[in-house]
Design a protein around this nucleic acid. Structure first.
Lengths: 243, 243
DNA sequence: ACCTGAACACCGTTCAAGT
DNA sequence: ACCTGAACACCGTTCAAGT
């Protein structure tokens, strides 16, 4: 009764401490339920009615937290992009950047998709309509993409990656890794993590070769030490991605 | 009346010449309607009821031609894989095989997706459940994939592509080109065919570099002429894809 | 054979009504 | 504020009945 008569001042603080009608944090529970259901039975099996009854609330209670079903899926996608960005940056830095960092980053991308197939499917499955997408979703997606652009630009400065437009390079790398991730979570590869890991390692190595600065030739012809940066790089071209 | 009293002997011939109740070829019309509707309003907008009323038949008439809605989508996917394979092989041969053939093949893949986004989305959107998929769908998908494997193996024999497992190589190449295709048809690229063409050309060139046999070094070190095949190739490893 | 129309068991969403 | 229950306008699918 006391905490009810003295609610916290800010909405954020209130959201953290409120004691709702029937549920602790229905918004959170709805997102978790969506993730679990999609993982177990596919995105078609996610219905608002079953979600409500599963969570012990009415089947319209969800409209207190989300505008509609698409908004619930958008929340899953937003959470996914945030997680993905964190894991990509962590892998890049844990690998000490450079070439091993790039390899770890690629592996981290596939690992994220395999461990969070529900998030990944919603993020890239086209369930959130492009035209009326949540601006927050657009933002976090761009931020995750930017982590890849940043890594490529740093490698360009280190002379590891060829001096093409970093935006183009990033789109290419993302497309390739995304394709492998889809193969992995769609069960198109023979069952078992072994084939996924094998293809992942193979793909990242071929990718790295494909975008590598022409080291062997350059190193031979110009005798430039590998630590010396190649200044033909045009980092500005990457900061604005064509979207 | 005469043709009714003397029906053709085989079911196939009968299907070709029958004069149905209300429609010329309802099966064909349903597939076309599905493709048009998906292109214009997305796959969610495809309902059996609207299809029926649009085509002037009852909303259950479709069950005479398809087991259910998933079977209709499977038919779209099957048609798509057949078309894709034909176009891939045609591009490979029109390019005179080898390196220009490979480049044309990659461009043809993206072009197919851009020109037939409905087919492409159904083929790879996960609408056809993996577990109870039509065996015909599995077959035509494998045949389209095989066109890529064949092209890679021929390039291996010609010393153009490195001597890795052709199945792995094909999975990697397909994943990358698929990712670009998805970007292209999902409107993730800035509008206009120019950006699609630019990214396509860029991706194919980086891909080719990534999977190329180590020509420059080999040619220099071993002095082997480019026409001479590299016999380290293991073509057998590719004929059975891990599925 | 091929098609119909009513019926069944579902959906997402809205909204007046409760506490 | 937050939740409910009835109602609305949809689905895919089944099936006895028509021609």
């Amino acid at each position: 009764m006391l905490e009810r008569s003295m609610p916290p001042a800010t909405p954020a603080a209130r959201a953290r401490t409120r004691k709702p009608y029937h549920h602790g944090d229905l918004r959170r529970a709805l997102i978790d339920h969506a993730v679990t259901t999609i993982r177990r039975h596919g995105v078609d099996a996610l219905t608002l009615r079953s979600a409500g009854s599963e969570l012990g609330v009415s089947r319209t209670a969800l409209y207190r937290h989300f505008a509609d079903k698409a908004a619930l899926l958008a929340a899953v996608a937003i959470e996914g992009f945030r997680m993905l960005r964190v894991e990509l940056v962590a892998a890049w830095e844990a690998g000490g950047q450079g070439r091993p960092g790039f390899e770890r980053m690629g592996a981290a991308y596939i690992r994220f998709a395999v461990r969070n197939p529900s998030h990944y499917r919603v993020m890239f499955g086209g369930f959130v309509d492009q035209r009326c997408a949540d601006p927050e979703l657009t933002r976090v997606a761009a931020e995750a993409f930017q982590a890849l652009v940043d890594a490529l630009q740093e490698q360009q400065r280190a002379g590891l990656v060829r001096a093409d437009d970093p935006g183009q390079l990033a789109l290419f790398v993302w497309a390739a890794v995304h394709g492998v991730a889809m193969l992995a979570i769609d069960g198109q590869l023979a069952a078992g993590a072994k084939n996924v890991d094998t293809l992942t390692a193979f793909a990242i190595e071929r990718l790295r070769t494909g975008i590598a600065a022409d080291q062997s030739r350059d190193a031979t012809r110009r005798g430039r030490p590998s630590g010396r940066p190649d200044r033909r790089v045009t980092p500005n071209a990457a900061s604005r991605r064509s979207t």
